[in-house]
């Protein structure tokens, strides 16, 4: 399909957007910041006959806290996330990851919902959402709204449980505790604007730990053995930190590609966890 044969529609409301999706199903595709779509279209993929532009929909712009949930609309950009006072207070882990996404230009255009929809195992905001045990809000005209735990949302690289008539509308999670230790770590081939070879989202409180890795499996994944040991540890000396970090080796399943080998990625899951723990624990 030629570029000039594609149709881009810009509905004014969520209802209207959902109607486009319902009517055209697989022939329609949501378009938010276009930071992934432009690249894929240029490569000859994702040649969708209809693009439904959702970037400006007012219903997808929310960022609020109520009833124990922090809710972030799907069209909120990385730039808004990383500058948000609410995020700084309730999800600094997510804000830190947003700061590491692409360039300033990408941050100005790319959205949280888009990162979820593209479903790359290397998507930078996803490990924090795993560590926050977030839920993804999906909406359709026929079925209304449903909330899916982020861990159940992804089926594999580029594949999610979203139905063609559904739109990702928001993400919600419980806020990070005020005294909580947390760390976002990303390993790329250079200091900035690099696709992650391995990434880590870490949350730590007495008796509580969340560890999520990006780019070391078909989806982002939780390292539950590491979490269990971390939540049970009584004291963190260097030897303990190292032995727990080494366990990550068994919890990841990376592949080799042009950026890094599987063996290195596996080692780096351990290395990032060790480095993250040593930074937050000062050991």
């Amino acid at each position: 399909m030629l570029l000039s044969e594609m149709k881009v529609v810009a509905p004014g409301s969520l209802t209207e957007a959902l109607r486009w999706l319902e009517e055209h199903q697989d022939r329609a595709r949501p378009l938010a910041g276009a930071t992934d779509a432009m690249v894929r279209v240029k490569e000859g993929q994702w040649r969708s006959p209809i693009w439904v532009e959702i970037r400006r929909l007012p219903e997808l712009q929310r960022m609020d806290q109520a009833d124990g949930w922090v809710t972030v609309g799907a069209a909120v950009t990385y730039g808004r996330l990383l500058r948000s006072e609410l995020m700084a207070q309730t999800a600094p882990l997510l804000a830190a990851a947003a700061r590491d996404v692409g360039s300033v230009q990408i941050q100005a255009m790319g959205t949280l919902g888009g990162n979820l929809g593209t479903a790359s195992p290397a998507g930078d905001t996803i490990p924090p959402l795993f560590a926050l045990e977030a839920e993804v809000g999906l909406c359709s005209r026929g079925g209304g709204e449903r909330w899916v735990p982020v861990e159940s949302f992804f089926l594999g690289p580029g594949r999610t449980v979203r139905r063609p008539d559904e739109l990702i509308t928001a993400v919600r999670f419980a806020p990070q505790a005020p005294g909580e230790r947390w760390k976002w770590q990303k390993l790329g081939l250079r200091g900035a604007q690099a696709i992650s070879m391995v990434s880590l989202a870490l949350r730590l409180q007495p008796g509580f730990a969340r560890v999520a890795f990006g780019a070391v499996g078909p989806t982002v994944l939780r390292a539950r053995k590491c979490e269990a040991w971390l939540s049970q540890a009584e004291a963190f000396d260097l030897a303990t930190v190292r032995s727990i970090a080494q366990m990550a080796w068994k919890e990841v399943a990376p592949i080799s590609d042009v950026r890094a080998s599987a063996a290195y990625r596996q080692q780096m899951a351990c290395a990032l966890l060790e480095r993250g723990l040593r930074e937050v624990l000062a050991v």
């Binding site: 690249v39 081939l189 250079r190 200091g191 900035a192 604007q193 690099a194 696709i195 042009v258 950026r259």
Partner: peptide, 11 residues
């Protein structure tokens, strides 16, 4: 240039 890596200002 997403996989051919050149230094950025940060590097």
């Amino acid at each position: 240039m997403s996989n051919y890596i050149i230094p950025t200002a940060g590097d």
